[in-house]
Design a protein around this nucleic acid. Structure first.
Lengths: 140, 140
DNA sequence: TTATTCTACTTTCATTATGCAAGTGCCTGT
DNA sequence: ACAGGCACTTGCATAATGAAAGTAGAATAA
């Protein structure tokens, strides 16, 4: 793990966000951690989009360096690592919820469950609170 | 402009969004259209991040093909094109607002004005309505 | 104890995307 | 007619991506 002082193209917040996770894979890893209860390297490899192993390793390292995720050793199996979201990573949830709503609206073949959109339309903030609670409980 | 039927890696809404605008430049163009009242090719080139001309042309074409922006000829000068957001593009505003809020929170050198964050904290929906109204007025 | 399997990566190399610089071609104003 | 503005294109070097195979240490089975 090399430490490098990152130079940003600008300090526009959108550019900052894009430079932090604006590639085709990073947010899919965040998604797996946030909505699919995944935590192991091997689990990320199983997602539909079929990330390759070298890219996954690279992105996990970058996301950890950016402070969005953290890595710990699994107590039950020392050859296994547990990845989880930091608070900085969890704070992406409102943005991801809006991204899901947009994607669900414009992809006619979207995999988004109707119940999700219903909850989004009914009470967005409540939806976020519930999802955060669910994440917390699964961590035990 | 070639028409190609796009194959998606999956129909997860987050993946759909990432495949549509998940590179390092597309959202900066959307940002310029949405928050900075830009509309000409030459104006996008002036942004702080210094996009190069070939990448800009490529992204404008992709965004147009994806239905996020549209291109018309400037009536006052036929050698000039006007780029503007479609409703599909405008619908990205809630997501971008959340992205700005996140970026402003975690970039200590953020260029985000305090007033923006204050308005965001006070009444998010109102902020979005005001921004949309402002965009509409500038189009006249 | 030895062998096999799990798990998380690395490495290699071909393909694709990016980025700089320079060039093209169509208006437009003088 | 000509200079300049405007929206791109083209060429080429460099960087990122992706598929496949390889490595290394811990766990499990024989």
């Amino acid at each position: 793990m090399k430490t490098k002082s990152k130079k940003y193209r600008s300090h526009c917040p959108i550019n900052f966000a894009q430079e932090t996770f604006g590639d085709k894979w990073s947010l899919l890893i965040i998604r797996d951690l946030m909505f699919k209860n995944k935590k192991y390297y091997g689990e990320f490899l199983l997602s539909d989009e079929k990330i390759s192993t070298n890219i996954l390793a690279d992105r996990l390292e970058k996301l950890e360096n950016a402070g969005l995720i953290s890595k710990t050793i699994d107590e039950e199996n020392n050859s296994r690592k547990i990845y989880s979201l930091t608070s900085k990573g969890l704070d992406l949830m409102p943005m991801l919820i809006e991204m899901i709503a947009w994607g669900a609206k414009y992809d006619q073949d979207t995999a988004t469950p109707k119940s999700f959109i219903q909850q989004y339309n009914k009470d967005k903030d409540r939806l976020i609170r519930e999802l955060l609670k669910r994440l917390k409980n699964n961590k035990i």
